[in-house]
């Protein structure tokens, strides 16, 4: 079938400056966000997830930064962070966002925001981000424990509600071990039967092409992998096709 699993790069923007993150380290400043997206456009990246941080005290600046990024990038732009009200949602979409990712923990307790976003901007524009290991207070995966976890029904109801498109599953690597994706947990979770495209995240520096295939085998709706843009910017650009093997394969 003609499916190209996508590689979503995440980029942190704070105070109108761009940062990348690496495992267990502080964000590293990499430059002006517009320049960064221009470079990524030249390399035909699949998609970028912008993580906005520190804008809650001055949300009026969000439309400008989103609009500037949108006019620069010729690829899909998703956003997360600082989405607290219906006005925030309108501002993001009116400024050119293609998709918003809402945090699962807050969304489970109040679906009002995603209902508004879906009914105005469409289901395909609303994603859900779930932190695999840090969800809940016990640092275990609640999805593994269907009989003991009251939140499971809320999750499955949400998956089947026609309110969301992608599920972005973060920290899906074996916690802290850098030993690859925890497929056992993934297989046994309620996510194995959900109807939503699944994005896996957790440190692409360790991913190989085979990992993408393995992910596809373990979830029929596996859609791609999300990773920090650090693989790009912490290496010289000549290594970009090594760091982003899925891109190099597509255009061979």
């Amino acid at each position: 079938m003609n499916v190209h699993h996508r590689h979503v790069l995440s980029l942190v923007i704070q105070s109108d400056l761009a940062y990348v993150t690496t495992a267990h380290s502080c964000p590293i400043y990499v430059g002006d966000p517009i320049n960064i997206l221009s470079i990524l456009s030249d390399y035909h990246v699949d998609e970028v997830l912008i993580v906005l941080q520190g804008y809650r005290s001055n949300p009026e600046r969000i439309p400008n930064i989103v609009r500037s990024l949108r006019l620069t990038a010729d690829f899909p732009l998703s956003f997360t962070g600082c989405i607290d009200t219906q006005l925030d949602i309108d501002n993001f979409f009116h400024s050119g966002a293609d998709r918003l990712f809402f945090p699962a923990k807050r969304t489970l307790s109040n679906t009002r925001l995603i209902e508004y976003a879906t009914h105005r901007y469409g289901q395909q524009a609303v994603g859900l981000s779930v932190d695999y290991y840090k969800f809940g207070s016990r640092r275990i995966v609640p999805l593994l424990e269907p009989t003991r976890n009251v939140e499971l029904h809320a999750f499955t109801d949400l998956f089947n509600s026609s309110l969301i498109s992608d599920i972005l599953l973060t920290s899906v690597l074996h916690s802290g071990t850098e030993q690859g994706i925890d497929f056992k947990v993934l297989d046994e979770s309620c996510l194995s039967n959900c109807p939503n495209p699944l994005l896996l995240s957790g440190g692409l520096g360790y991913f190989l092409n085979e990992t993408m295939s393995l992910c596809a085998e373990h979830h029929p709706l596996f859609s791609g992998i999300a990773s920090s843009t650090s693989a790009f910017f912490l290496n010289d650009h000549s290594s970009v096709l090594v760091s982003l093997p899925f891109l190099s394969n597509r255009y061979q």
């Binding site: 395909q124 992608d166 109807p195």
Partner: peptide, 16 residues
């Protein structure tokens, strides 16, 4: 609707 006719919610990604 994809959910009704294809049993999944969204078609997303690059397709030939």
């Amino acid at each position: 609707s994809l959910a009704t006719h294809a049993q999944f919610s969204t078609n997303v990604g690059y397709r030939t």
